[in-house]
Simulated scan of single mutants.
Amino acid sequence: MKLLQLYYFKALAEREHLTATAAELYISPPSLSAAISRLETDLGVPLFDRVGRNIRLNDKGRQFYDHVKLALDELDKGFDELQSTAAWNRNLSLRVATSTHIIWEKPFADYICKHPHVAFSHRSLSLDQLLDSAETSPYDFIITHFTDLPSAEYDSRVLIPDDCPGLIVWQHHPFASLDRISLAQAKDEPFVALSKGFSMRKYFDLLCKKAGFQPKVVAEADYSLRARLVKNEYGIALSTRTGAESIYLSGLKFIPLSEPVDTRVQTLFWRKDRKLSPQAEVFRDFLTEYFASPAAEALNPSI
């Protein structure tokens, strides 16, 4: 019994028409008939009833068909999976979008250095872009605060569950000697805020509202200009503990907030309707382990 005979049998059992099945298989009717006859000889039972020019699957044939279909369907499924994996391996790419890029520069760099064969691309997205499926569709993963994306459309994994907020001040600011501070204590301070549209700006506005004041925003900027303005003592800013560890904010003092205590939940998202490639699964596990490591916990202690 040969595999090709089983494929011929399955096709003929489903069509019950010798000439049409032979044409579908690109062989001659006599060749198909001979292949089925050899299969029946090997099995020791007839699988079809032949009445004149008509052919019909009999009881033994139907019984055998159930097993053949199951086996061949599994083989086809395995073939498709291997073909899909091979296609992924021929085009090793990974596309990631974030809403707060300063947190992810070091882990992304570590990943790229450990997986130089993967073509890695990254882009920062605004809140409006996060809610636009045309903008998010090209990406394997999106990393942002857990409330920024519609959870019904995505699977997710929390990377940093308790990224605590705090003030960023220069070393000689009057707040710099404090170990902890209430945001309300800073209500009269000049703030350098991120521009509207950043996820972190939404978080800043929310915390100020919970603290009961309208912040005095003296400048709106991106991450790098915000850091430069604080270093130039133009105003203070709000960040999270993980953000404060970035190279942008090096040399500045981070003071954790005692209240409000709402923490940022940094979350890895991927679409539910899309199968992850092998390299995407490796990246997901890499980030999970990265932020579960003792070194990461030292940077981001729970409060």
Rank of each mutant, 00 (worst) to 15 (best):
K2M: 04
L12G: 08
E16A: 02
A23V: 06
A23I: 05
Y26T: 13
Y26R: 12
I27E: 01
I27N: 00
S28M: 04
A34T: 12
A34F: 09
I36Y: 02
L39G: 00
L39W: 00
E40P: 11
E40G: 07
E40F: 13
L43W: 04
G44L: 02
L47E: 04
D49S: 10
N54Y: 07
R56I: 14
R56C: 07
R62W: 01
K69Q: 10
A71C: 09
D73S: 13
E74W: 11
L75V: 15
D76I: 07
G78F: 07
L82T: 09
N89H: 15
R90N: 13
N91C: 08
S93E: 15
S93R: 15
R95I: 06
A97R: 05
T98I: 07
T100I: 15
I102R: 12
I103N: 13
I103W: 11
E105M: 06
F108I: 08
Y111P: 05
Y111V: 06
A119K: 14
S121R: 08
H122S: 11
L125I: 06
Q129P: 01
L131P: 07
D132A: 01
S133C: 09
S137V: 09
Y139N: 01
Y139K: 07
I142V: 15
I143C: 01
T144N: 00
H145Y: 09
T147M: 09
D148N: 03
E153Y: 05
S156V: 04
V158M: 06
L159C: 00
C164L: 10
P165W: 03
G166A: 04
W170H: 13
W170S: 13
Q171H: 10
H173N: 05
H173P: 05
P174N: 01
F175C: 01
S177L: 03
L178W: 03
L183V: 02
Q185C: 08
Q185P: 04
P190M: 09
V192E: 06
M200S: 14
R201V: 02
F204M: 12
D205H: 03
C208M: 03
G212I: 00
G212N: 09
Q214A: 11
K216C: 10
E220M: 12
D222S: 04
D222Q: 02
Y223L: 13
R228E: 15
R228P: 07
V230E: 01
R241P: 06
S246K: 03
S246P: 00
S246F: 02
S246N: 00
I247C: 08
Y248N: 13
Y248T: 05
G251A: 01
G251T: 02
G251M: 00
L252W: 03
V261T: 15
R264D: 10
R264Y: 13
R264A: 12
V265S: 10
W270Y: 14
S277L: 08
Q279L: 11
E281L: 15
V282N: 08
A296L: 05
E297D: 09
